[in-house]
Amino acid sequence: MDTVQGPYRTPEEEITRMVESYQSSLLRLCCAYLRDRAAAEDAVQETFLKAYKNISTLRQAASEKAWLTRIAVNVCRDQKKSAWFRYVARSVSLDQLPEPVGEPPTEQDRELTLTVLRLPDKLREAVLLYYYQDLSTVEIAQALQISQQAVSARLARARERLRAALEKGEGK
């Protein structure tokens, strides 16, 4: 588990460090969650703004990463509830994503990503938090305001749907 930074930093130093540490992973999380790059950028900005405004509460949080992820999930959910978002149809494709940096994705990577993106919302958020953000089922239950059993059930259902795509890349 990551540790919470000590209370000796200023809020400005804290938020700067958090943006440096988590911006990238939260951007990917929100993009996969919202299936919309521009909305994801807005969501990440909103997440850090909320974090900055509520940074005092971080010191009671067990895990900084879980705390930020929880804010991000709720911001993404808010975005999905907003009228702007509801008015927008989203097909799922990777073609408009910017050119990958570093090691290029394999065909299996692309297929697995698409399979995750095409999961129904509830399963997708469970998968992203558990498999991608590496949160525990307890932390996910807190973030999503559902029981731990419900988290496990969603993960089991998601695993069924992901199985074929996962097995394709096995051993590679």
Binding site: S24, P100, P104, V116, Y132, E170
Partner: peptide, 17 residues
């Protein structure tokens, strides 16, 4: 292994963000 595969797939595919 499932976690590793999913993290790798998403990180690689979305690395251009």
């Amino acid at each position: 292994e499932e976690k590793r595969r999913i993290q790798q797939a998403l990180n690689r595919t979305l690395s251009g963000l």
